[in-house]
């Protein structure tokens, strides 16, 4: 279902025609088109956008924690097309109970480190990721620091009265 602000957007319309059940909503705040995609269709959607719509670059993958909402995590994909000079944002909601989503490393190799970063800092697991290890935090670190319920000072060095 294509949302009203994106009815005329050619890329969104093409994606909707190709995968009718993939898009669940979207908006175009500040002139930046954003599509909400069903998590199970994210790889297909990305592959279509890369191969058919020329979004050859994946700028980044990141995540926003909307604790205590459910589903809690919003995984954000920032796409960029050089030939169209256009950017597109895809979003998938991932629940806290089962924080898993398919990896898009098969579509863009650059997703590798970005997904590792999201895994490291938010604890979201990417299925079929070739090398899902921590990247920024030490390998033996416990917890995922960018989650909203993780204290800014950390657990290890917190003072008792804090």
């Amino acid at each position: 279902m294509l949302p009203d602000p994106l009815q005329d957007h050619p890329v969104a319309a093409a994606l909707d025609a190709h995968l009718p059940d993939a898009i669940t909503g979207g908006h175009s705040e500040h002139g930046e088109p954003t599509l909400f995609v069903t998590p199970s269709r994210i790889v297909e959607a990305c592959r279509f956008l890369k191969l058919e719509q020329d979004f050859i670059r994946l700028s980044a993958v990141t995540c926003v924690d909307w604790h205590p909402a459910d589903p809690r995590f919003e995984v954000v994909y920032l796409l960029h097309s050089l030939s169209k000079n256009a950017r597109l944002r895809l979003k998938c909601w991932v629940s806290e109970a089962d924080p898993e989503i398919d990896s898009v490393t098969g579509v863009w190799r650059s997703a590798n480190w970005y997904e590792r970063e999201v895994f490291d800092l938010f604890g979201i697991r990417f299925r079929n990721h070739p090398d899902l290890r921590r990247i920024l935090m030490p390998v033996d670190w416990e917890g995922h620091p960018l989650r909203k319920d993780y204290p800014v000072h950390g657990y290890k060095y917190s003072y008792p009265e804090e």
């Binding site: 800092l121 921590r134 990247i135 920024l136 935090m137 620091p145 960018l146 993780y150 800014v152």
Partner: peptide
């Protein structure tokens, strides 16, 4: 990588 990770993104939130 990660030796210089200082949690800047986390700190931005406070």
């Amino acid at each position: 990588i990660g030796f210089l990770h200082t949690g800047i993104e986390k700190e931005c939130e406070v």
